[in-house]
Write a protein that binds this DNA or RNA. Structure first.
Length: 464
RNA sequence: GGCCCCGUCGUCUAGCGGUAAGGAUCCAUGGUUUUCAUCCAUGUUACAGGAGUUCGAUUCUCCUCGGGGUCACCA
């Protein structure tokens, strides 16, 4: 069975990069009928917060990415880690190191001065004397001093590291006894039965250390897939300072989960020329072997396009539901269909859609003089007056087509082009020179409101 | 700096020794539309550079250059 996981540290909100690796992990598990687990890496008591953990969970909920099983919190697993550390100690695969912070710093300084790589010199590796008085100790793991560590990566291929270049006996337990990252990751991934690790390639150089832990503990290695970073426009790793990287900010901006997920799945992954993927298709088609090797630059142009695509093709019922987030109660509104049909092609986001609705429903406060002058040329006033008479004498006005017929009649009778009524009418109804189809607008606001707006515009025009 | 990864249109990408280097987005132009948007059509723009290997390289190898990541008692 394929088991994947997403393992964020709760130091802040869920951001775009994290979400993408989570999505990849989720898709791969689902595709294989496997499990997708969530693990909260909260071993750093100083930097973690429960609020951050909750925010991450809320984001998953919004996006509809469901994890399997119970969420694992590393902070509650101290006993487990302690047992494995003891095991390594007992087996002689790890040891206590009594080096002080100052000694370590001094060592590093001399190494740097000699242009050597800063690394622990192993001075306590085979120590079995009497520990220095009153000195705290950390626990270090015995790493191979020579040879190669090969990371067999599904994305990058085999990556070879020389032990002497990158390894030393790194700390697996701090002086307060708490275990460190590279240790707990290996232990947890193994205990959780994770078969495929999908994570950012900023972890690639950590992987040899984790492999050391796996091997010391006799655990089988999972398959690694290191996904390239998402860069900002400066070409640097996307960070929380880059603005708008909080996943939930996209909800506030009016993007839908399907648009965001579709956008992210195509960042660093592709399936031929296909751009639009439903969740089912993503699950069907995703495979880590198709992940790109190179980093991509984060740019939301395509997100906007996807977002408008999804809005255009969404049912009015669903749109009405999403609009509730912006305080609009349309679900059982009698003009819902006309309204949304008229506007769904025009909005990039749900928020924009909400604004567009507002622009129709709320009558223009006042009329801009320049706009009015531009629209009210020639016989505009007469045409509008004739149109008002038409409306007044019509009783069954409900659909856009009802109003459309009226407009046609007027231009025919007055012997003018359609533009002669369109421009002034649009300004009268909406207060501006562009906007949705007028017949729809009138059907939405109704006969009385239509007449009111036209006469208001007419009197505003006469006082210019 | 050591180690590692990466390098196709501005951006997201297809390509897996022989292609007029394809798609999408963006931008521009034209058409449709009473307007704007949508939609449709058309167009501009790319293999970082240099050596090899080969009959033939965007594709394979090496070097250079460029970019990124990582080097903790953070995760």
């Amino acid at each position: 069975m394929v088991v994947t996981r997403f393992a964020p540290s709760p130091t802040g909100y869920l951001h775009i990069g994290g979400l993408r690796t989570a999505l990849f992990s989720y898709l791969w598990a689902k595709k294989n009928g496997g499990k997708f687990f969530l693990r909260i890496e909260d071993t750093d008591k100083a930097r973690n917060s429960v609020e951050a953990a909750e925010a991450i969970l809320r984001a998953f909920e919004w996006l509809g990415l469901e994890h399997d099983g119970e969420i694992i919190y590393q902070s509650r697993r101290d006993d487990i880690y302690a047992a494995y550390i003891k095991q390594l100690l007992d087996e002689g695969k790890a040891y206590r190191c009594y080096m002080s912070k100052e000694e370590l710093d001094a060592l590093r300084e001399t190494q740097m001065a000699n242009k050597e790589r800063a690394k622990y010199d192993g001075r306590y590796r085979d120590f079995n004397g009497i520990p220095p008085e009153g000195r705290d100790s950390v626990i270090r793991i015995k790493s191979p001093l020579s040879g190669e560590i090969i990371v067999r990566d599904g994305v990058k291929g085999d990556v070879v590291f020389r032990a002497e270049d990158i390894l030393d006996d790194f700390v697996i337990a701090r002086s307060d006894g708490s275990p460190t990252y590279n240790f707990v990751v290996a232990v947890d991934d193994s205990l959780m039965g994770v078969t495929e690790v999908i994570r950012g390639d900023d972890h690639l150089s950590n992987t040899p250390k984790q492999i050391v832990v796996y091997e010391a503990l006799g655990f089988a290695l999972p398959k690694f897939n290191h996904v390239p970073m998402i860069h900002n426009s400066e070409g640097k790793k996307l960070s929380k300072r880059d603005g708008a990287t909080d996943v939930m900010a996209y909800k506030d901006m009016g993007y839908t989960p399907e648009a965001l997920l579709n956008f992210l799945v195509r960042l660093g992954w592709s399936h031929g020329d296909q751009e639009i993927f439903s969740m089912d298709e993503m699950i069907e088609l995703f495979n880590p072997k198709d992940i790109n090797r190179s980093a991509s630059i984060y740019n939301t142009e395509k997100l906007d396009w996807l977002s408008s695509h999804y809005i255009k093709n969404m049912s009015n019922d669903k749109l009405a539901k999403l609009l509730e987030f912006y305080g609009l109660a349309l679900t059982s509104h009698d003009k819902k269909e006309i309204l949304l049909d008229a506007l769904k092609d025009r909005a990039k986001t749900i928020k924009e859609l909400a604004n567009l609705i507002g622009e129709i429903v709320v009558a223009p406060e006042n009329y801009d003089e320049a706009t009015m002058t531009k629209a009210f040329k020639g016989e505009a006033v007469d045409v509008l007056k004739a149109f008002m008479i038409k409306i007044n004498s019509s009783n069954e006005l409900h659909l856009p087509s009802d109003y459309h017929h009226l407009m046609e009649e007027v231009v025919k009778e007055m012997e003018v082009g359609f533009g002669k009524i369109g421009q002034p009418l649009r300004v009268a109804l909406l207060g501006k020179l562009s906007g949705p189809a007028l017949d729809s607008v009138m059907a939405i606001i109704g006969k009385d409101e239509t007449l009111q707006r036209i006469s208001k515009a007419l009197s505003a025009h006469s006082s210019i």
